[in-house]
Amino acid sequence: MDQYLEQPSAWATLGLLVLVLILLIRSFMLSSKLKRLRRSYTQFMEGTGVEELESVIINLKQRLDMQEEGQRNLKQTVQSLGDTLRQKKGNVGIHRYNAFAERGSDLSFSIAVVNDGEDGMVLSGIHGREQTFLYAKPVKDGKSEYPLTPEELEAISLASRQGS
């Protein structure tokens, strides 16, 4: 037998035998790990009614895409509502004053109704002893094509500060 082990082919055969034995053991170990993974996968998927994890992931991706689209739509709607709200003529400023300093009281007035961009109108009432005159002037960017009195400018300023 010693003569047999002295031959190089005997060593090669013995080395290959050991290598096969190591690979066989490694194969059994991998098989055992695979069984544990399958058992874990089966427990994970148990009760879901789903056979494949891939279909679950695809379904989740589709739902996520739908939610992102809905969020984009909501963001656009909120932005549109904000733009519309800024255009509404909801800022009101009232300035009362005495148009005739020598007599009377603060019965004259200027009312400005403007949006955040100072677009809207100003309405002034000049009260005298016998009658009251009303004047309406359109306002664009805080200015009018008709001359604005200091009282009307004050009413526009009050309305603009209300919107801030």
Rank of each mutant, 00 (worst) to 15 (best):
E6G: 10
Q131V: 09
D116C: 03
E152F: 00
M29S: 06
D65I: 04
V113P: 00
L81Q: 07
L158Y: 02
L74D: 07
I58S: 10
D116F: 01
Q3V: 06
F44W: 14
V56H: 06
R161S: 15
D83G: 13
S157I: 01
V18T: 10
E68R: 11
V56Y: 10
S124W: 00
L74G: 09
T84M: 11
I25Y: 10
R96P: 00
A159R: 00
I22S: 07
K75V: 07
G82F: 01
Q162G: 15
Q79F: 06
S160Y: 06
Q3S: 14
L30N: 11
F100R: 07
L148K: 00
L5D: 09
A10Y: 02
N91V: 03
E145Y: 05
T149K: 07
Q131H: 13
M121S: 07
M1H: 07
S32M: 08
K33E: 14
G120T: 01
Y135I: 10
I57P: 03
Q43T: 10
L23C: 15
I57C: 05
F109P: 01
I156A: 00
E6D: 12
D65A: 14
G49V: 07
Y135E: 05
I25R: 11
E68D: 09
Y41F: 11
R39P: 00
E68H: 07
L14F: 12
T149R: 08
Y4N: 13
D119T: 02
S105L: 12
L37K: 14
H95F: 04
R103V: 11
D119I: 01
L30D: 12
E130Y: 09
A136S: 12
I58E: 10
K89N: 06
N73T: 15
L34G: 02
R96G: 02
L16I: 09
G142S: 07
K88C: 08
R129A: 10
Q76Y: 05
A159K: 01
E102P: 01
E130G: 05
R36Q: 11
D141N: 15
S160C: 03
F100D: 08
S157V: 01
R103W: 13
K143R: 15
V20T: 15
L5M: 12
E102N: 08
Q43M: 13
S108G: 05
P147A: 14
E154F: 03
S9I: 15
N59I: 06
V113W: 01
D141C: 08
N59F: 09
G104F: 03
E51L: 13
R38M: 14
F44P: 06
E54Y: 04
G128A: 10
K35C: 03
T42L: 08
S27G: 13
S27A: 11
T132A: 15
Q3P: 04
